[in-house]
Amino acid sequence: MAIHEKTLIDAERLQTSDNLVLDGVDVSGHWNTMVLPRYLTDYDTDFARQIRTFSGGENVHRCWQCGSCTNSCTVYAQNTDFNPRYWIYLTNLGLKKEILKDKDIIWTCVSCNRCTNICPKDVKPEGVMKALAHWLEEEGHTPETKSSIFDNEFLGQVYATGRIEDTRVLVNFLRKTNQSLTPPWLIEIGKRMTKYFPLTFLMHMGLHLVFKPRTKSWGRTGEVLREYVHEQKEIARKARAMPKEAVHV
């Protein structure tokens, strides 16, 4: 083997070309393995500002790395890879690639807010975790979360009819998230409901499922609402992408 202790090197820094001939010499396979340098070569100086435009991330630049957040963290106690202090540092320096390495655990914050309560600089680390998770989702680094799927289903019904139909929200949510339509807890709810046999309620439910009633004189309200929400999201997105000269903070 050409490289010793290969296991100690991040997989992404190892480069091997299957077919390579150099000066007439066949060096295919592990003979041409190169290890990319591990040093950091630049900061994204605009990244912290972008994260500050997400709700919760407003104070991220205040951090001085005392580590109170990580020390008090409920999730860190279970998983030492979950390190809010470290991600806040990476955010402030704009070391995005390093943050992406942890993209699959940042969302596991349970929002207990112990970090936010203890932070001496009022960074609100819990909010930063939320902001980072939203950034990851918006940039497509992580798949759409279940809560976003639920929100969209819920809002979609409101736009269309001015009201929501619990059963339909639930069924569509389960379907869109590839979950069973008959989870045990739902069956249990059904069982207990039938015990009381709420005939009128069940009839309403059935009717509404079929006829999808709208709120009286809903008219174009849904359209207007949808446009407004879309507009607001665009404004936020543009603020994030603003050129440095326009914001300089």
Partner: peptide, 8 residues
Amino acid sequence: LVKRPIVI
């Protein structure tokens, strides 16, 4: 803190 060399 990142425990990495930097060349910036």
